[in-house]
Amino acid sequence: MNRYERRALVASPTPPAQAAAAELADLFDWVPIEQADVVIALGGDGFMLQTLHGQLAGRASGVPVFGMNLGTVGFLMNEWRHHGLDERLARAKPFKVTPLEVSVTGVDGRVRTMPAINEVSLLRETRQTAKLEVTVNDRIVLPELACDGILVATPAGSTAYNLSAQGPILPLGSALLALTPISPFRPRRWRGAILPDKARIRIRVLDPAKRPVSAVADQREIRDIANVDIAMDRARELTLLFDPEHALDDRITMEQFIA
């Protein structure tokens, strides 16, 4: 019996993804996502993140996801093909992805907790430069960082916003986090840090009334924050499935050689 016998199909609302879902609908028997051994996700990287966040919220928690790209970049996805799905699932290579747990305290004192699979970024809300204090493991490492923002990226997310901000590419399984400034002004020569993923990071907004800052965890934004606490959430591991010739760890490695 195929270990992925019971399959659920989810698709982005975009026309290409909906057309692909219609092709697959009649080829296999599909079950509700809550009953599935595997989830087939059709769309782009944004839709994959949405699907994984649905798992973190308790829907099909822990079920592996095999994505096929019907979006733009598709870094977290496999190639779209409507045929050979049985063989691809049988050969698929699993990759574990550990999300960040992000605890955000607003200037109003309200505390909200949310996960981040790729990264959490702090961004200035106005023309005023953000001023941030950065603490790692209860030690203040940057008393004042003047910048447009800062982000903390996981290895899975290190080739996304983090790479665009000139952050380092982290190999999957490296047990590291990237702490990357966005357009830093002072200290001028600080270009970020690579931290062990056991690190506990706190970022405090200095003068939030004059220089308001928002926090964005993947696709969710909270405005007017006072501070953010960030750590790995090892209790909620996610599993992505990849074709062996299209594996995520190899893609992350090869990103370092793209000019």
Rank of each mutant, 00 (worst) to 15 (best):
H82G: 15
A235D: 13
P155V: 09
L89W: 02
A17G: 13
D207V: 01
S183L: 03
V136I: 02
I222N: 07
R211P: 07
L176A: 04
D138H: 04
A215P: 13
F47W: 15
E101W: 02
A22Q: 15
H53K: 12
N227W: 12
K96P: 04
R186S: 13
V104Q: 00
R234T: 08
R139P: 00
A165C: 15
A60S: 07
A217I: 05
R188Y: 02
M68G: 09
I203K: 02
E5K: 11
Q18V: 02
E34A: 14
V104W: 00
V107T: 12
G62E: 13
E133Y: 01
L163I: 09
T159L: 11
A21Y: 11
R202S: 10
V152L: 03
D250M: 12
A226Y: 10
P16M: 09
L142Q: 10
A226L: 15
S61V: 09
V120P: 05
D138L: 04
A19I: 05
P212G: 05
R220C: 14
A25Q: 06
R139M: 00
D249H: 07
T72N: 14
L100K: 02
V213T: 02
Q219A: 14
S164A: 15
N162W: 10
V134S: 00
K93V: 15
M68Q: 15
P208V: 12
R7F: 00
